[in-house]
């Protein structure tokens, strides 16, 4: 699946006052691959996402999307190029029915240009397109879940809704910030095929996760952050075998347990 890199991160550093949240981190993401990013709490994962998507400005370094420098561009311009993200702290429009959440991204210039989501093929107003996207992503249409007020939905649906908001833009790359966390085993099990389907449809994914076992099922490559620095990068097995990762990240028994399952 590997072609030229779709995203290149070159030596980005981000400091908040005295805190160095990211220290000269570099990596690349290939077209169509799923890159997993793991690391202990506070290791700079969300800050990386914020830098890439323009929500914070990196202190130094460059970010290239399809070879174009997007460092320091405003978030809406970056999203408009097809580089979208979910929020770790979910940000749906709580007061609206679920499907109305998608009317908003479908109103965006990108969605209108690309025809939204699958582009062109779909007709009808934004409400019906929104319901279609929700159905695709696992909201059963017959159950009336798409019509429920968002604040009444359980976490599993909210996580899907975050993904659906990205999909409405017909994205080229989605960065998922902990879409598995807070979900039950069975909920994750039903998300995994969805992630695989997105990859099959040509979307590149970066997945930030604490749920390693589930992440390793889908990720082609894994990158480990620790204290704002890149520790290692490689296949799941390589990363897990690395003694530095064991030391920095897990109690050693936990590694054994994860390894057994992976």
């Amino acid at each position: 699946m590997k072609e030229g890199p779709i995203l290149q991160i070159q030596e980005i550093t981000k400091t908040f006052g005295g805190i160095i949240a990211l220290n000269r981190v570099s990596f690349e993401v290939g077209e169509g691959e799923i890159l997993g990013i793991i690391g202990p709490n506070g290791s700079g994962k969300t800050t990386t996402v914020n830098c890439i998507t323009g929500f914070v400005k990196p202190s130094s370094g460059r970010i290239l999307f399809r070879g174009k420098n997007i460092t320091g561009k405003p978030p809406h311009k970056i999203a408009d190029m097809g580089l979208t993200r979910t929020f770790q702290i979910m940000r749906p429009y709580f007061s609206l029915p679920a499907y109305k959440n998608l009317v908003i991204p479908l109103f965006s210039p990108r969605a209108r240009r690309t025809g939204g989501w699958r582009g062109g093929g779909r007709r009808g107003d934004r409400n019906t397109v929104g319901i279609d996207i929700l159905e695709e992503i696992g909201f059963e249409r017959d159950s009336y879940v798409p019509f429920k007020v968002t604040s009444t939905l359980p976490t599993g649906y909210l996580k899907r809704l975050e993904l659906a908001r990205c999909l409405a833009l017909k994205p080229e790359l989605i960065i998922c910030d902990e879409v598995f966390s807070g979900l039950s085993m069975s909920e994750i099990a039903s998300m995994v095929p969805l992630i695989e389907r997105l990859q099959m449809s040509g979307i590149t994914l970066i997945m930030i996760e604490h749920r390693l076992r589930e992440l390793f099922k889908v990720a082609d490559r894994v990158l480990v952050l620790n204290f704002g620095e890149k520790l290692v990068e490689g296949s799941a097995a390589e990363v897990m075998a690395d003694p530095r990762v064991r030391e920095a990240y897990f109690g050693s028994e936990k590694v054994e347990e994860v390894m057994r399952h992976a």
Binding site: P74, P75, P92, I104, P105
Partner: peptide, 15 residues
């Protein structure tokens, strides 16, 4: 949405 949730609107590619 701009009022309730401006970050999500920006993330949806709207200024």
């Amino acid at each position: 949405a701009v009022k309730d949730n401006d970050q999500a609107v920006r993330a949806s590619g709207m200024n």
